[in-house]
Every structure is written in C-alpha cells, then in structure tokens.
Design a protein around this nucleic acid. Structure first.
Lengths: 223, 223
DNA sequence: CATCTCTTGTTATTAGTTTTACAGGGAAAT
DNA sequence: ATTTCCCTGTAAAACTAATAACAAGAGATG
C-alpha cells in the first residue's frame, strides 16, 4: 500500500527538482512560446535541444521531472508544455511587483514590456526623491518609500525589484523584508543579507560582462 | 623529464577551470574589492565563504585552481587576490564595448557607472533612429549602425552589448559578428545564433523574475 | 628554539549532473 | 492486422562538482 510514485516529491513531501533543471525551465518556456507564436503545435526533444543547445536526452530527462506528458511517436504538445512549465514556475497567475529606486535602471525597468508578458506586473514604484514622488512614471504611481508597508499590503505585492545605489541597498532590503516581501530581484552590485525565508536573485551587469570577457580570453578552454 | 605540473593547463595545453568556478570568480572579485574598500589587507577562506554563501573548503579549492598564493596561517592578501583574479578574467586591462540599441535599457546602460569600475568602457553607441544619431548620450557618440565596422575598427572594440527589440536582435547580431566582435552581451529575450568562435551571454530580466517566482513558490524545496 | 595556533593545499569521499543506450508506446502506412 | 518508423521515459554509466578531513607551512608566543 505505498503512495503512488511521484517524480515531483520525495519521501518528506519536498519538491525535488534539481537546481540545474530549474535554470533551464525558463529557457524551455521561452523557446516553446516562440514556437507557438510561429504556429507550431507540437515539438520534440531533438528540436528543443537544438534551440537550447543541449542534448535531446537532457530535454527528455528535464521534462520528465514534472510529469509524463510527452507523446511517444509525436513529441510534446506546445501548449500543454507551456501550461505545465508555468504551473511549476508559479507564473500561471500574475505576480504583483514593487520597484524600489527610480534611477536610470529603475525607469528602464518600468518601461520594459517583457515582464508583463511573462506574468509580472510592476504595480507600484518607490523612491526618496521628492521630484518623482506623487507622479506617475509609465503609468505607475511613485510613492515615498515610507509608504511601502501600506502599498504592499493593499496591492498584495510579494516580489520587489531593487535598483537603488549600492550604498543604500542593504537598508532598503531590510525595509522590504520587514514589510513581508518574499522574493527580491537585486540589481545593486553587492551581496545583501536577508532572513532565510526570503529569496534573492542578484543581477550584476558588470559581472556578466566580466564573465563574457573571461570566455573570450579563454576561448578554447574546456571550462 | 615531464613538464612541471600545472593546475591551469591539461595535457593538450588547454586551460582547465571548471564552469562552476568561473561563475564564482566574479563573486570573489567583487567581495574582495569590497573588503579592500573597507580597509582590510588580508582575508581567508572562512570569511570569503561566509560572504559568498559557500563552504571554506570550496573557496580554497576554487582559488587553488589558479596558483598558490594563499599564505598558510595568514590567509589571502586581498590585493594579490584581486590582481590574480583580474588577470584570469582578462579585466586587468580595459575593454572597449559597443552598445547597440539606444532604447530605455540602452540609455540606462550608458548611464551606469559600474561598468567602468570593473574595466569596461562603452566607447560608442549605435542605433537606426535619426533622432539620436549624431548626438552624444552620456558623453558617448551615437552612430548609425551602418558605421559599425568603421568605428569598431577605429576604437578596437571587441565586445558588444545588444539592447534592441527582440525582432531585430538576430539581424543586429549577424552584423556585429561580421565586423569581428568577439563577445556579445544580449539583452533581447531570444536565443541568438552565432558562429562558434563568438561568445554570447544572455541576460533575460523576465526570466530572472521567473526564477525568483519559482524559488518563492517552492521555498522549502531541495532544488 | 620548541610549541601552539591558524589556515592553506590536497586527497578521498560523497553527491549531483549529463550522457549513453535501449525497451516500449503510439501513429502511419501497407 | 501487421509492419515500420518515430519519439518518449528511464536505467546504467560516465562525468563533474561539492564536502569533509587532514598533513604540513608560517607566524606568534613563551
């Protein structure tokens, strides 16, 4: 009388999807959405593999982690795949996002249309500069950061993107954590400290260029 | 009469630094630079480990990949470490970078000061919009993209950051490759195709948010 | 100078990831 | 209905990375 076997949960009821797979999930989603836009109804592991630059076996193994919806002899139905991945990623429903820091990058993020298409909506922006507070930027209200708690609650905001100067980052993060934000996308090029229940992803643009420089300098390396 | 053993090169004379290590190298660099700014002269694997969120053993193993400059009983001298990492990364000298696409994000990138501090300088910008061509944005000349070859050559540009709309990305990439650019930082949320000798790093901001959403939704997962 | 403490570099072990190989399900064709 | 072909899911093998454990180097201390 054992439980039905699941690829998704282990004995402790914890979701078990390898880190490496999660990183590729978004990539699969993006490519399959493009395929749909191009009018394709089904795809297969070989095609997806070529698009992502991984082997076909890798694709099958990755996708098998969250159920069996491949169709032998046919492949994967694109829409089915998109729905499944969105479910796993949690983007089958829209996330409200707060943006903190209306500098160059902050403004660019507000104007960026790509977020909405993937299920994210910047619903409020925050700063400490009186020149922007009270105005709308790209249709989004800009509040003083002291109003964060109130707005976050009223709008059910769970994620925050932080684009403030490095020296202000940790203080802002502390505030953001205090008001109950669950995930932070940090654009400041510093490591920030958060309690363990809060998730952080850092995007450091200079670091990306550095990685690029490395791969160029060591072009024929095995790394 | 065998060659002296090297941690850097294998039998074929290829540089062997594991992918995973390269990804952390930039992180080490960033943290050690912060330590120097805070007036510290030496650090050690335990301290670095805490700053990066990895074990001390991991730090030692990573750094050991590119020589032996740790000092037993003392640790690592910060400046020595920074110089060594910059050498490996290729950022001991400044890289000239071209920016293609002067939209929201492009402008934000032009204004971003962090690149220069890490050894990157955007020396020329390109677009197809007559409203910006011929002007300077943030002190950087904006050229028509048809002048790319000429400017790239004149300014010894080896890297390009691409912040054009998705639908234009591949065409721009083809052009950029044709004029001999060696590395591309792609901000368009599409996979681009390049010949094998050209290196690409993609930055997809919606995808980063997606990854964040996943970690929030599956907060207590093992992945 | 011997000893103690700190901290590295490295080896051995364990864990995680990718690749390879193939059995079998399902559609299409004859 | 049988055969053929395609394509998945998965087990096993190969590879890569992370962790743990420790011998030995270097400064500090008495």
């Amino acid at each position: 009388m054992s439980e039905p076997k699941s690829r998704l949960f282990n004995d402790q009821g914890e979701l078990v999807i390898p880190k490496a797979v999660v990183g590729r999930l978004s990539l699969y989603l993006r490519e399959v959405q493009h395929l749909i836009r191009d009018g394709k109804e089904t795809t297969n592991s070989t095609e997806l593999g070529k698009l992502l630059g991984v082997t076909d076996a890798q694709v099958r193994k990755d996708l098998a982690h969250f159920g069996q919806f491949g169709h032998p002899g046919v492949g994967y139905r694109c829409q089915e795949l998109v729905d499944a991945i969105k479910n796993i990623m949690g983007t089958n429903t829209t996330w409200n996002v707060a943006l903190i820091g209306i500098g160059n990058l902050g403004r660019a993020l507000l104007r960026y249309k790509g977020f909405h298409e993937q299920g994210f909506q910047i619903v409020a922006a925050f700063d400490v500069d009186d020149d922007v507070i009270g105005f709308k930027v790209e249709g989004v209200d800009v509040y003083h950061i002291q109003d964060l708690a109130e707005v976050v609650k009223a709008q059910s905001i769970r994620l925050a993107a932080i684009s403030v100067p490095s020296h202000a980052a940790q203080a802002v993060v502390d505030l953001v954590v205090e008001v109950g934000i669950e995930g932070i996308l940090n654009f400041a090029p510093v490591t920030i400290n958060v309690p363990s229940q809060v998730r952080v992803i850092g995007v450091d643009l200079a670091m990306e260029l550095e990685q690029l420089a490395f791969t160029v300098v060591n072009r024929d390396s095995k790394s």
